[in-house]
Structures are given as structure tokens and as C-alpha cells.
């Protein structure tokens, strides 16, 4: 079996080590500092973990559940906040109905 056949058969999107179609993508070595949004999401995740409400593995599971096209389109911490929200709803920490209503408000 060569690397090409093992690449995409059952692979999950986030599991991207060695995948052929990314091999010609240049790496952007610029630092790109974090935004206030990034730092806030990061801190929120740490607090939820510290309070035993959500593990880092649950965060990852939620990120991995994001469809491939959206995973690529969204920024790193944009994926995190979606995973955090989905996990908190699933675990009943915040109410889905309430979140939906607030998101619908203009």
C-alpha cells in the first residue's frame, strides 16, 4: 500500500499528517499575534477546564466534528468557540433554546 492510497480513504479531515494535496502548500512563518478574541477564547477554555466543565479532549472532539470546508475556512479560535458552545449545550451547562434565541436577536 503506498501513501497515496492510505491518504483519504477513511481519514478524518483534521488528521492531516503527510496528506498529499497539502504537500505544495507554503508555510507562512510570520508570527501573526493573537487578537483579543483569540486570547479570550483561550482563557475561557482554560477556565471551563479548571472548573471541570469541559476537558481538552472534549474541545478537540468538538473541533473535529466541524465539517471539512468550515474547518478550513474558520480561524483557529473560531473553531474553538464553536466546539466550546456545542459542548456546553450538549452537557446542559447552557441552554440550547436560550443560546438560539440570543443568536437570533438583532
Amino acid at each position: 500500500m503506498d501513501a497515496e492510497t492510505s491518504d483519504d480513504e477513511h481519514r478524518a479531515h483534521h488528521d492531516m499528517g503527510g496528506v498529499s494535496r497539502y504537500q505544495c502548500l507554503p508555510v507562512d512563518p510570520e508570527p501573526h499575534g493573537l487578537t483579543e478574541f483569540d486570547r479570550e477564547v483561550d482563557a475561557l477554555r482554560q477556565m471551563l477546564s479548571a472548573k471541570g466543565l469541559m476537558s481538552v479532549d472534549e474541545l478537540r472532539r468538538g473541533i473535529e466534528a466541524i465539517p471539512a470546508g468550515d474547518y478550513d475556512r474558520l480561524g483557529y479560535y473560531e473553531r474553538w468557540i464553536r466546539s466550546i458552545a456545542a459542548t456546553l449545550v450538549r452537557k446542559g451547562v447552557i441552554e440550547q433554546r436560550e443560546l438560539k434565541d440570543r443568536l437570533a436577536e438583532r
Binding site: L44, I81, L99, R102
Partner: peptide, 12 residues
């Protein structure tokens, strides 16, 4: 994303 963060933070 920013709106989602603000709402989740508010609710918590």
C-alpha cells in the same frame, strides 16, 4: 464568532 463568544460568555 465574536457574537458567539460574547453570548456564551454572558450566559456563563
Amino acid at each position: 464568532s465574536a457574537r458567539l463568544l460574547a453570548i456564551v460568555t454572558d450566559m456563563l
